Amino acid sequence: MSKGYSLKNVNELSGGDDEFIAVLVQTFLEEIPPDVDSMVQAVNSNNPQMAYQYAHKMKPNFQLFDIDLLKQIKQIEAWSKTNKSKEEIMPALDHIVNVVNNVLEDLKTDYK
C-alpha cells in the first residue's frame, strides 16, 4: 500500500540527517492536526479569511512531505475571495481532512 507522503524533499532539505528528519516529522505531527481542525472550524463557521490563513500556512508542509493536496488547498484559498457558500468548498475540505488523517497515521506508524 502506498503512503500518502514522501520524504524525498525532507531528505534533500535535511541532507540525510536522521535526527533532523525526525524533528521535521514530529513538528508535522504536532502542528498539522490543530491547523486542520482550525481550518475545518473556519469553514464550518463560514469564515473564509480564517480558512485561507490556515490553508496557506499548511501548504509548505504539504509540499515538503509531498502530500498531494495543492489543488484542494488552492480551492480553499480561492473560496476566501468569492461569495460562494461553504457547501461548495466542503468536498475539497473533506478530501484534505481524509488525506491528512491517513498521512498522520502513516507517519505515526513509520516514526514511533
Rank of each mutant, 00 (worst) to 15 (best):
Q63A: 12
N47H: 10
A92M: 12
L107I: 00
M39C: 07
E87Q: 14
K86S: 12
K57P: 10
K8R: 15
H56E: 01
I96S: 05
A92F: 11
Y5G: 02
N44A: 06
L70C: 04
L107W: 06
Y52R: 14
L24M: 13
Q41R: 13
P33M: 02
Y111E: 00
L93A: 10
N44P: 06
F65Q: 02
G4M: 03
G4W: 00
N44M: 05
F65N: 04
S85V: 09
D37W: 04
D110F: 01
V97I: 15
A78W: 14
K81P: 05
G15N: 06
T82K: 09
N44D: 11
N102Y: 08
D110M: 00
V97K: 12
V99W: 02
K59W: 02
M39A: 07
D94W: 04
D17W: 09
V99H: 04
V99R: 05
E12M: 13
E30H: 06
L24E: 04
A78S: 15
Y111D: 01
I21P: 08
K59Q: 09
D94N: 15
K57R: 13
K86R: 14
K112I: 09
E105L: 10
E87D: 15
D94H: 10
D94E: 14
M58L: 06
K71V: 14
Y5K: 05
N61E: 11
Q26F: 06
K84C: 09
M39E: 06
V43G: 06
D110W: 03
I21C: 07
A55D: 03
K57Q: 10
T27F: 07
V97D: 04
M1V: 14
Q41P: 02
L13P: 02
V43K: 09
Q63C: 01
S80V: 04
E12V: 12
L69W: 06
G16F: 02
I32D: 00
L93P: 11
D18P: 07
K84D: 15
I32Q: 00
Q72G: 12
Q72D: 14
L70Y: 07
E12N: 12
D94T: 15
N102C: 06
N101D: 08
I96L: 12
E30I: 09
E105R: 11
A42Y: 04
N9S: 14
D17T: 05
P60Y: 04
D37I: 03
Q72K: 11
V43P: 03
P60N: 07
N61K: 13
I89L: 08
E19Y: 09
E77G: 04
N11T: 13
A51Q: 00
N9Q: 15
A55K: 02
I76F: 03
I32A: 00
D37G: 09
T27W: 08
F20T: 09
S2W: 11
S38F: 02
A42H: 04
F65P: 02
L69S: 07
I32F: 00
T82S: 15
E30D: 10
I73A: 07
L13F: 12
F28Q: 01
V23N: 08
P34N: 04
V103S: 03
K8V: 13
M90C: 03
P33S: 10
S14Q: 01
V103W: 01
E87C: 08
D35H: 01
E19F: 11
S2I: 11
